[in-house]
Structure formats: C-alpha cells, structure tokens
Design a protein around this nucleic acid. Structure first.
Lengths: 207, 207
DNA sequence: CATCATACATACAATGTTGTATGTAAAAGG
DNA sequence: CCTTTTACATACAACATTGTATGTATGATG
C-alpha cells in the first residue's frame, strides 16, 4: 500500500471518526473493538493507532466534532433585542439546538455519549453530561432571572425553579429522542412542549 | 468447602446480586468481569455459573428485584377518591416513586440500567427504558384526560401534551439525579418541580 | 447409613483484544 | 535525484475473560 498526501491523511482521520460513530452507535462503545472500527472504514488498526493513541483518545476526538454549548446557541441567534425578551431568547436557542440535533452527526454522537457508552479509561461520560446539564441550567437561570426582573414571568414562579423545570423537561425530551429518534421528530415535539411550557410560565397579558 | 443448605444457597444468590449491583454501578456493566463480582461476594465464578447462566442472565435477575410500574404506584395509594382528583393521583404516585427511588437498591439498579450499561448479549436496556417511558406516558395521559373532562386542567392545554410534558420533566429529573444522587435529594427537588408544574397546569380557582 | 443430588471451587482450553514492534512504499524536502 | 519522514499495514506477544469440565464435601432422602 501507498502513503497518502496530507489531505488524504486528514480524510482518513475523518473517515475513522465517521466509522467510529456508526459502529459505536450500533454496538455500543465497550463492545466494539478498534479492529471493527478500522475495517468499517476500510483500514486497519495501524491507521487508528497512527492517528490516535487509543480508544479513549479516538472517543474524545469524536466528541470534539460536535461540542455545542448553550451560550453559543444564544449568541448565534444574532438578535440584538435578546436582552429585552429573554423568554424568546430561550425559545430560539432551544429551537436552534433542536435543529442542530437533527443533523446525523450531532444526533449520533450525543446518542453515543448518553446511551451507548459507559465509563472507560480516563473518560467519564457522566461527568461530561453533568457539565452540560449545569451549564445549560445556569444559562437558563440567568435568562429566567432577567425575565422575572422584566415582569415577564409569573410572579409566583421562582426563576431558579423555572430553570430547573425547563432543563429537566428538555433533558428528558433529549434522552427520549436520542433513545429512538425515529419515534418522533425532536423539532416538532420539542417546539410543542417548549412553547406550551413557556406559555404556562409567562405572565398572562392583562385583561 | 462445604455444601450449603437451601436457605444458604438462596442467600448467596442474593449476595451475588448485591455484589453485582455494587460493582456494576462502580465500574460499569461492560467493564466488570464475573470474577470481580464473585470475589466481591467472597465467592468464585463457580457460584455465579451455578445460579445464573451467564452475565446477561445475572443482569436480568438483578432487574427483576426492582420492577416498579407506574400503575402499581397508583394502586398503592389506596385512596378511593383517586378518580375524582386525577392530578392529585399523579402527584401522589410520583411522590411514592421518588420515595422508592431513594432506597439504595432501587436507586442503584436504575442508575445501572440508565447510566452504566450498554447493549450486550440479548439485553437491550434502551428497549427497556422505552417500555418504561411509554408505560408512564400512557398512564399519565389517561389521568390528564380524566382531569380535562373534570375541568381541572387549563382548557388551552391538551391532555396528551400535558402528559408528554410531565413525562419529559420527570424523565429528565430522573436522569439528572441518577447521574449523581448526592447532588440533590430527588424527593425534595422532585416535589418542588412536580408541584410547580402541576400548579401551572391546573385550572386556577375562579375569583 | 448408604446413596444421590446439591452447591459450589478449581482447573483448563479457547477466544478476542490490546499495545507495540517492525515493515514499506510513497510523498516531501532539499 | 536522493534522503528522510509520513502514513499506514502486518506481525507478534501479553493479557483478560468466558464457558465448560471436573472435583468434592455436604445436606437431603429413603
């Protein structure tokens, strides 16, 4: 066999990560050997050990391709009136998140992280999930607090509780969908649930 | 070594299941060998292979000890006025579920099922979770439909959406807590979130 | 009290997986 | 055009785990 050009080498690296996604998702991380990943990409383990130190390193590289912090979603809205309508900012950020999750790569990797891998090596997926959850909950709490100051939140509803409530709901929806994405469209159901919940939380227009 | 009496044999079976719970929870199902489980129970693999056919069989037996369908929780309330106050029935059933989850055995096994095991052998934990989720959502939908008929639900809120909403929220809370049960008490936070959500959903008293 | 089935412990063979060591042909560089 | 490095493929040794086969002491049974 022949050596590849730098671009080709980068392409095989991506191909290996693609293969890892598919095999991990199908068989679970623990039950897939590096051999299976390599063969699924029409390579050998030599290629894997060239690009990555071991399975954990490959796994981390796979995660790097789909990082999606909540704050970035907010910033991507690009609407300057965000600070005046925090509930709408939350809504748009969530919708953006739903849309992104429908891309196969995002969906697959998150499904692997949440449903198809256990602790292994120096990688603790639960710790990562904890970080994601707290990051999301913290951001939500900020925006709900802002909404409360602006009188846009029902007065009997504490902003922190609202944040916990919404984060739990989104997390549950997230888990349910990742478990079986053919069951329903996360964009559709997510929109309905999110709008319903926000409508319940918003202070009703005065009559 | 000596043979044991029937009662002792049953005790070692339970001890093996206890050991499996602890080791599974700590190291993940895939990464724990039967040897480790056996040694953790001061036994050998011989004992395991006597009581169970293999790891999958042991795993299933472990699950059998903690089955908790939503309907049973409702029935355990024992309050005959349940059909007249469906939202209260939901509330009590959830609270009962929270309390049960705080028992170490229930907590550990569910944490294993949801966060510490992948597909293996003929066991698909995701399918089990799907069944649990649909069972819960179906039951919730029934009670919300009942509440709607009795005019106890906000008229703009569809019972099915309410059920999906609550199920997602409970599922998210469930996952978050099982990921790290020392972070908060599921009974405390669960009560707050549940009561808040139900209060938002309930039709407000006429003024 | 002799026998048998039970409840394990021990020993062994087969397999799968990992990490590394080595081989190699082509691309990069001068 | 020659050398060096790159980007893998191949080969090998070590280990962990599994299932089974066998051993065995004891409780149960007539």
């Amino acid at each position: 066999m022949a050596r590849r050009t730098k671009a080709e080498a980068a392409a095989t690296r991506e191909a290996l990560l693609d293969a890892a996604e598919e095999v991990f998702l199908e068989k679970g991380v623990a039950r897939t050997s590096l051999e299976q990943i390599a063969r699924h990409a029409d390579m050998t383990r030599g290629a894997i050990y060239w690009h990555f130190r071991n399975k954990a390193d490959l796994f981390q590289a796979m995660l790097q391709r789909v990082r999606m912090p909540f704050q970035e979603l907010i910033e991507e809205i690009g609407d300057p009136s965000v600070t005046e309508r925090p509930l709408e900012a939350i809504r748009l950020a969530c919708l953006k998140g739903f849309e992104r999750l429908e891309q196969p790569r995002y969906r697959r990797v998150h499904a692997i992280l949440i449903h198809h891998c256990e602790v292994f090596g120096d990688i603790d997926p639960l710790a990562m999930q904890n970080e994601m959850a707290e990051e999301a909950c913290g951001a939500l709490a900020d925006y709900f607090a802002c909404a409360a100051r602006l009188g846009q939140l029902r007065p009997e509803l504490s902003p922190d509780v609202a944040a916990e409530l919404l984060q739990a709901m989104l997390g549950g929806l997230f888990h349910d969908w990742l478990r079986n994405h053919e069951q329903f469209s996360i964009l559709e159901r997510g929109t309905v649930l999110l709008d319903t919940e926000l409508a319940l939380m918003r202070t009703p227009p005065a009559e």
